[in-house]
């Protein structure tokens, strides 16, 4: 084997080693369409949130009343919108990635995806707990920036375990979150830009690069 074409087989071997190392450490079935789906869900969610807020301030302006009861209702409505948006985004993006893995003949739930999930979950749970803590002190203005920053950190962390391009999405989310920190009144807009628009842009680029 080595006698015939030593350099060619050596090169083949090295390429093989590299490919297997990559494949065994990164979850490569993550679909770009998952990003697009999550982005669409986020935009719909943001619009629903916008309508809820609009209603709230609309009735406040017409009646001139501002009761604590209304405000606690608003909080519940916004939380429900948020949770539904998250669930819809999660299910649709999971489905699209599952479909891609199936087409590639790869398992969705192997050691690479488990590792990816774990490395996403740690910063996300931390962020979730942090935000719940902030809400105890009514720091509503900073919910959107905190979501963006923690999500961005989760993505940067996860980029070591999946397609590395996701790192750039993470950087963008972090920058948006920090900008939102300086203009805290526009949380919903920043939130829609980060979770909606950026996801759609990223997902489209990934889809064109790896799946088209």
């Amino acid at each position: 084997m080595q006698e015939n074409q030593p350099t060619e087989t050596s090169l083949e071997d090295l390429k093989d080693i590299r490919r297997i190392m990559e494949r065994s450490t990164r979850f490569i079935s993550l679909s770009g369409l998952s990003g697009v789906a999550a982005g669409v869900c986020a935009l719909i969610g943001a619009y629903a949130g916008y309508r809820v807020l609009d209603n709230y301030y609309g009735s406040y302006n017409s009646s001139g009343l501002f009761s604590g009861d209304d405000f606690s209702q608003l909080k519940i409505k916004m939380a429900v919108v948020g949770i539904i948006t998250f669930i819809a985004a999660f299910i649709s993006s999971y489905y699209l990635t599952w479909r891609k893995a199936k087409r590639q003949g790869l398992p969705v739930w192997d050691h690479t995806s488990k590792r990816l999930a774990w490395n996403m979950i740690v910063p996300l749970i931390t962020g979730g707990a942090f935000i719940l803590g902030m809400l105890r002190y009514d720091a509503w203005l900073f919910v959107a920036p905190a979501c963006l920053v923690f999500y961005g950190l989760a993505l940067v962390n996860a980029s070591k375990y999946t397609l590395s391009d996701i790192r750039y999405l993470g950087y963008c989310e972090i920058v948006l979150g920090i900008l939102n920190m300086m203009y805290p009144g526009y949380g919903l807009w920043f939130w829609a830009a980060g979770f909606g628009v950026l996801h759609i842009i990223y997902g489209t680029i990934m889809w064109m690069k790896y799946e088209k």
Partner: peptide, 22 residues
């Protein structure tokens, strides 16, 4: 060669994952 490549970058791996990968 494949088994060794996988084990160089993964602390440990089970039989089925290895079978699937290779």
């Amino acid at each position: 060669l494949g088994v060794m490549s996988v084990l160089m970058v993964n602390e440990e791996i089970n039989f089925n994952d290895l079978k699937q990968l290779l």
